[in-house]
Amino acid sequence: MAVRIDPEFRRLVRERLRDLDFNQCYQCGKCAASCPVFHRSPELLNPRKIIHMAAIGVREVLTQPPLWRCTTCYECVEQCPQTVNFVDLVVALRNLAYEMGMAPRGVQEEVETVLKQGFVYPLTGRIRQVRQRLGLPPAASDLEGVLQTLREVAS
């Protein structure tokens, strides 16, 4: 089945990522060659393909598991001859995927957990015990404060 090139989606991506000129990519593959995840296995993540899919307008880029495998190590950004910032692109695409409900379930649950508890991980009884032993306040005593901080960081 042919992958549909979607000018609408492309326009959306470009609007969202206005400061990110990933269209300058020449598809040389230096990002992939420098990527530790790619080095482990090309199937796990190929930054070049993600840039290309975003650049030509392939909606499936948002549902691809590789999008979530970037470690944001910035090695590709260091190496790119056309100064494409892949890490920023990946983060922006992840946000877009989440907004459109296309992020993997695990990611969506994580976000919900943070919003509910102020933590990435669910507060188990074991964690509560450890916190008590260390003399820390019980978690999420100030959920509003945590979310406020998060919003500040995000903006």
């Binding site: 089945m1 042919a2 992958v3 549909r4 598809q27 070049r48 393909k49 290309h52 392939v58």
Partner: peptide
């Protein structure tokens, strides 16, 4: 238009 995007290794349609 149907083509192989050789950089993706996928068939694309536009």
């Amino acid at each position: 238009i149907y083509a192989e995007d050789t950089l993706l290794g996928e068939e694309v349609a536009l």
